[in-house]
Design a binder for these strands. Structure first.
Lengths: 218, 218, 218, 218
DNA sequence: TATGAATGAGACTTCATTCAT
DNA sequence: CATGAATGAAGTCTCATTCAT
């Protein structure tokens, strides 16, 4: 782990993604499933090989290292989750002059929930390893915050100027929203991965309502 | 893991807690430190033995199994964190007729932050393994929710009757508060375990303010 | 290794030497370089393939076996080093009625040093594997001694008859000269392969002087 | 290999030599036999384990690494072979005012031949790995030459002053004697390890005679 | 002819656990 | 109680070799 810079790793990784063999595809799929289920450290390469119906050597021919296999699983997800969010979501939202902060939040949450829902297992892996691995945490966390927080800051400041948000420092606001949304995702997609038949619309509505108005009556 | 029922394990564990040898004490201390630092799966018993300056055999003489050592570390914490909270905190708070919901929240948060702060490493272990280990999650999660949520429900209902809280279902409110507070704890004590010199008073203040009033101006 | 008789292998090898593809050429060159550098056992075929910019399969298409590739590298050298020496060198030298034993020695040494210098890497491989591989030693050593020693014997006997050499058994003389010259080559070309800028003329002079007169003063 | 300084390794190694278990003893013995026979790279730890009638894990419990096992075999030999020679042999010889250079040589050769004969297999290992492993060569060769050559220099100079040796530079003399003796040892103990029933007395006599007087008649 | 994906045997190593002392 | 040597199953990884393309 911690091959120096994660960004470099992402780029290198991308370049290596020539054509994926069928077996490669199968290996990654299986690895995702098992890592998500039992955690990286508790999943052996022989287990993966067996489940993917592939010789164990094949895994190492393509990924060289178990660590590398993990990265091959995680990095594309990171790559997609951050810049996409940064550009698509924020950019789109901001440029289209979406009305109030609530609308922005709703758009953001809906977008992210769909993304995570489609990559639920990888999200589970990332969360688990983020907590579990010192190395990964050191690599990924700054990368996350640097990219996301900066975007959020801009949005918050914009709406603060418009007078829609309370007048406390953006950093404080971030420290409130971030764990709330993060915690929501974690508890929904990682802690209770089976219990996924909620009414999404209503769920998001409640979340937004809570973020905006809190619990106090009136 | 998953030696049947966790509650049974707790009870059995309690009974076993006769007199702890010096060595036992040292073993548990060291295990806590290492599990918190590198995760259960990445910590070998020989490592623990070496760091505790104890023969590897000694660990197994007392705990029989590595899994068992983990439980011996986690269970007392769980045992303390749930019932204590249930009885001490809630009981105390409720009986003393503490005024508004805000005061209740402040008392609760302060109390829990201190508790976790004093057991920071074990908290890290519990969080990590909770996410990481399928088994543990299956055992602990229901136990958690059953005990805590029930108490919280009572409180929320009380304050809702008093008209201090918005009129949405308690379960919904829980689903908002829980991740927020949990996320706060996790991000503060697990994700950024070094960065612990915040202004606690102010931090709690912000948290409460956000919980109560959300982000909307006015 | 030890495909029966090495002589047969040499002959078979010779027959196989039809036309070498460019790739074949490249493979052998690369194998020589790598075997010399890191030893046969520590050089993988994939390494060779990569360095030769050839697919790994190509190596096996041509040489069938890694062992076989080693032989393809070694045998031509052996084939050249022995008979050439036997015929060219000895024959030439002897027939030309070269004067004294010293002159013969000088001619021999000069000739061999040039030959080894031009095939330094293969010489390194042969020496290393000769010591390292039981099999190869069993195959090559008798082959060497049989061919070389026989020639040397004739020469020594000739000069002994001429009264130029001391009167001890030829076999004893051989046991003296052989390690000296061999040791000289090994230490010069294998042990200190970088340090190759000696004054060759002087070096050979000293060697001969020592062989002829030893260390005693007067 | 190449744990920085070999001298340090020797010292560290010595300290680690607490009490050897029976199994440890067996492991080292077996390793010596197999390494000598087939070379380090061609001997697998499982082979050693099987031959030593020991679980493979036991090897690693004691030596941690295959490399380390090799060092555990080689270093005591080195440690004994160099200083012993330096102090015992040279010291003794020089101080006792042993008569002529021939006597010195005879004493030295006899001593070393006995030492190597008693450690024949380890000597084989050292020679083989010295040629085979770049790392080891870089570590050991300077160590060898520094310790041995310095001693030899003193002796040679002494006898040169006494007028017993020819008047050419000591370094040149060394470059003659060293390969001769080294080559003799290698060819006798490594190349033809089976053929060990020579008449040692006569053998040494011839060697000395050659070293002193060379091949020239008269 | 050349490729390179795939293989599986086997290499080195780790580790929880047992047991004689 | 405590020790630490011993174990062997299992883990990660390497590599010569095969084979369909």
């Amino acid at each position: 782990m911690s091959k120096g810079n994660l960004l470099d790793a992402i780029i290198a990784q991308t370049k290596l993604t020539k054509k994926q063999t069928d077996k490669q595809q199968k290996i990654v799929e299986t690895a995702i499933k098992l890592f998500a289920e039992k955690g990286y450290a508790n999943t052996s390469t022989s287990e993966i090989a067996k489940a993917a119906m592939v010789a164990e050597g094949t895994i190492f021919r393509h990924y060289g290292t178990k660590d590398n296999l993990l990265l091959s699983v995680i990095l594309p997800f990171i790559k997609d989750s951050i810049p996409t969010m940064a550009e698509e979501v924020f950019g789109e939202i901001m440029s289209k002059n979406i009305g109030c902060f609530e609308d922005f939040l709703r758009a953001l949450l809906t977008n992210r929930i769909h993304f995570i829902n489609e990559n639920r297992e990888i999200f589970q892996i990332v969360v688990k390893e983020l907590l579990y691995s010192d190395e990964l945490r050191k690599d990924l966390l700054p990368f996350f915050t640097k990219n996301i927080l900066h975007q959020i800051s801009k949005v918050i400041n914009l709406y603060k100027k418009r007078g829609e948000l309370i007048d406390i420092p953006s950093s404080t606001i971030q420290r409130m929203i971030f764990p709330l949304i993060g915690g929501y995702f974690v508890s929904r997609f990682v802690l209770q991965p089976d219990n996924l038949d909620l009414d999404e619309e209503a769920e998001i509505g409640n979340l937004i309502r809570f973020i905006m108005d809190g619990l106090r009556k009136e």
